[in-house]
Amino acid sequence: MQEELDGLATNYPDRFKIYYVLNQPPEVWHGGVGFVSKEMIQTHCPAPASDIQIRRCGPPPMNKAMAGHLEALEYTSDMQFQF
């Protein structure tokens, strides 16, 4: 879905932002590296609000950890979606 997601970010820059994080990135990589942290979320995601939704996709341990970070940062379950 990378092409579709990148297209949304290009076509709707004020409404859609994407930040890719890879644990083992290729040699040339411009996204995040490692595990998603609270600091990454605060830096790259909008603050919690009723009109914000954070979507995540990855292996179960990553999704579980990220859900915990989002909850700690006061994103409600309505503000999160897991693929």
Score class of each variant (00 low, 15 high):
22 L>Q: 00
68 G>P: 04
52 I>P: 05
10 T>M: 04
23 N>C: 04
62 M>V: 05
6 D>F: 05
40 M>T: 02
7 G>V: 00
73 L>P: 04
63 N>K: 07
33 V>C: 09
58 G>E: 07
38 K>L: 13
11 N>E: 12
6 D>G: 03
69 H>F: 11
10 T>A: 04
69 H>K: 03
20 Y>E: 09
3 E>C: 07
21 V>K: 02
82 Q>L: 13
40 M>F: 06
29 W>G: 08
14 D>V: 05
29 W>K: 06
22 L>I: 07
41 I>K: 13
49 A>T: 09
37 S>F: 10
37 S>H: 14
30 H>G: 10
40 M>D: 12
33 V>D: 06
66 M>G: 01
13 P>T: 02
17 K>T: 08
7 G>A: 03
83 F>L: 12
68 G>N: 14
50 S>G: 08
5 L>E: 00
11 N>W: 01
5 L>Y: 00
63 N>W: 01
62 M>N: 01
35 F>L: 07
15 R>A: 11
38 K>W: 11
77 S>K: 14
7 G>W: 03
67 A>K: 08
25 P>L: 06
5 L>D: 03
34 G>Y: 02
61 P>H: 14
50 S>N: 11
76 T>G: 04
34 G>M: 10
13 P>G: 06
13 P>H: 03
39 E>V: 13
44 H>K: 01
70 L>A: 07
26 P>G: 07
67 A>P: 08
28 V>F: 07
9 A>H: 01
67 A>D: 15
50 S>Q: 15
3 E>R: 03
79 M>K: 03
78 D>H: 15
73 L>H: 03
2 Q>L: 13
38 K>P: 06
11 N>R: 02
45 C>A: 13
52 I>L: 10
30 H>V: 00
1 M>L: 14
50 S>A: 11
49 A>K: 15
7 G>P: 04
24 Q>M: 15
28 V>Y: 06
20 Y>I: 02
66 M>E: 03
71 E>F: 04
14 D>W: 14
78 D>M: 15
